[in-house]
């Protein structure tokens, strides 16, 4: 039972972090906390059942989680290199100015190739 409470707490902390933190890295940590909470629950129930399938599942689930984490990390690197910020709100603001400079420009270049 203690473990269930622990995993619930982890979940709550993770969601709180997602709701309040603005830095990408902190968002990432919150995401990891949620994933850990879920995994912990799984291990818990699997061990009580005494079957190996639970652990097998967990290893695979971890691997997908890690992949997604990797992608988010990559995004973080892109964001900080290209736009010099890791703040998600600032990224959202960048969005407004971008339609003219960003995609528009590269598109007009491609337009010539296509037609």
């Amino acid at each position: 039972m203690d473990y269930v409470i622990l995993s619930m707490t982890l979940l709550a902390i993770g969601i709180y972090g997602l709701l309040t933190k603005r830095h990408l890295l902190k968002v990432l940590i919150s995401v990891e906390l949620i994933a850990t909470a879920a995994s912990m629950n799984f291990v818990l129930l699997a061990s009580s059942l005494n079957k190996a399938l639970g652990e097998a599942f967990l290893i695979l689930a971890f691997s997908t989680d890690t992949c997604v984490t990797g992608i988010i990390l990559a995004l973080l690197v892109i964001a900080s290199k290209k736009y010099g910020t890791c703040d998600i709100r600032k990224l959202a603001k960048l969005e407004q100015h971008e339609t003219i400079e960003g995609e528009g420009k590269s598109d007009s270049k491609i337009k010539e190739d296509i037609v």
Binding site: L11, G14, L18, L24, V27, V31, I34, A35, A37, A38, S39, N41, F42, A61, T64, D65, V68, T69, I71, I72, L75, I78, A79, K82, Y83, I88, L91, A92, L94, E95, E98, T99, G102, E103, S106
Partner: peptide, 26 residues
């Protein structure tokens, strides 16, 4: 294309996906 809007949108998508997967695993 790595535009800020796609970066932002992808980030949101990924975080939602990972929350979803955590819920599902739970």
């Amino acid at each position: 294309r790595k535009t800020p809007s796609s970066l932002h949108a992808t980030l949101k998508y990924l975080v939602m996906i990972i929350i979803a997967s955590a819920f599902i695993v739970y």
